[in-house]
């Protein structure tokens, strides 16, 4: 059983690396090395945690992410913090690339990834949530519905 898990694990890692390469190729960014963090948590614990903290992100689910893929290794789930932008950007390229995707909003200076007030200061998780419905940070102060659709 243990061996099978290891084999499966290796397969999953390989396929993720493959998909990343695909993503990166499409977006023409420099190659991103994906290091899957090692963990001391048993697989059963990870499965249990995934039930307690399910992902709402279909893409991440498809890629077979578990807790440590994004959060790194941890002992106690209570010490796990929301992700900072640098952590997300290890896979998603850099802030400029993300801003380019929403550059159609530049004309009115409301590109959420290169906004008038915050430029590249916001953390991805300020809007995009993995375990809860995403929100629009700009809506703390603005009527954002006129600018853009809901946050993926």
């Amino acid at each position: 059983m243990k061996k099978l898990l290891i084999v499966l694990g290796v397969l999953v890692i390989a396929s993720i690396a493959f998909v990343y390469e695909g993503m990166n190729a499409k977006e023409q960014s420099k190659e991103t090395a994906v290091n899957m963090p090692a963990t001391t948590l048993p697989a059963s614990k990870l499965t249990e945690l995934q039930k307690d903290y399910p992902s709402k992100n279909d893409q991440h689910k498809k890629l077979g992410f578990d807790c440590v893929t994004c959060h790194g290794d941890f002992k106690d789930p209570k010490e796990v913090l929301p992700l900072q932008k640098e952590q997300c950007l290890t896979c998603h390229g850099d802030y400029k690339k993300v801003a380019k995707r929403t550059s159609f909003l530049d004309k009115k200076e409301v590109n959420p990834h290169d906004g008038f007030h915050h430029k590249d200061q916001l953390d991805c998780a300020d809007c995009h949530r993995e375990h809860k419905p995403s929100v629009n940070y700009c809506a703390n102060c603005h009527d954002t519905k006129v600018w853009m659709k809901s946050t993926p």
Partner: peptide, 10 residues
Amino acid sequence: MDAKNGYQGT
């Protein structure tokens, strides 16, 4: 008019 005038400022 551009909805950039703050919360409920449109």
